[in-house]
Amino acid sequence: MTVDMRNGAAQPTQAVAIAIDRVSQRFPGRSGTNPMLALDDVSLEIRRGEFVCLIGPSGCGKSTLLNIVGGLIAPSAGSVRIGRNTVNGARPREIAFVFQESTLFPWYTVLENFRIALKFQGVEGGGWRDRAMAALRAVGMENFAEHYPSQLSVGMKQRINLARGLCVETDIILMDEPFAALDEQTRMVLGEDLSVLLARTGRTIVFVTHSLAEAVFLAGRIVVMTARPGRVKAIIDVPAPHPRSPDFMLAPQFSTIRNDLFALLRDEIRQTVAAMREARDGARP
């Protein structure tokens, strides 16, 4: 395990926002089988304002780790601290989630969805409309405030999910493959927008992705995870300031990092595929 503790985009002076301390996660196996180790002794510190990408083979525990950080799952071992507090449940005032699929309520308009998100968070009273409209404007969706989600394309919905994540004004946003369901062009544009927003708002972001290019383009640091059980295999810095323009993708630095990343991942992915084959063949009589 090569853990590189140099700081990426984050300022060395900035405080730790998320401290993941020796977290392991075991899931009960299906009736009678052995429990399955999804995460094995993961430690990671993320500083305020940092953009960290988690990348790793499918099933290595990225979503699980994100859910543990956000307090949606309690870890089997270890702990997570947000600032000075140990996480033991959802922390809607500090952490917002954006998932791969839209979690907008289909029965409410876009604007109502924002109102309810704020209500869940415990923010009542006036001012919510201005906040919602500002967030919608930030992602270029202000003209769709009165639409129902079913009237929007997948990409538009995901923009709004992103806007909702911004609107609740948490310090931390956890994103679980938020752009995975989108086509590549939309994805690139959204990535660019995110980079701009980030430079402006200084949120701390943990972002799960399977796309090497997306990780390099967005992240200050990229955390590469091993095949299951998930561990931290390596951490790669991407020392380029936000906002990053699409030209960044053409820079030699970009392809160098991307190739390093691919080399690190390739073995893990082979291993995952081999394990899947084995499980399949083992299941055969």
Binding site: L72, I95, T103, F105, A117, F120, V168
Partner: peptide, 16 residues
């Protein structure tokens, strides 16, 4: 379950 998880992640109580 996705919507329930989404709501819970935003801090919704059981009643909400």
């Amino acid at each position: 379950p996705l919507l329930v998880r989404g709501a819970e992640s935003m801090g919704a109580s059981r009643l909400q």
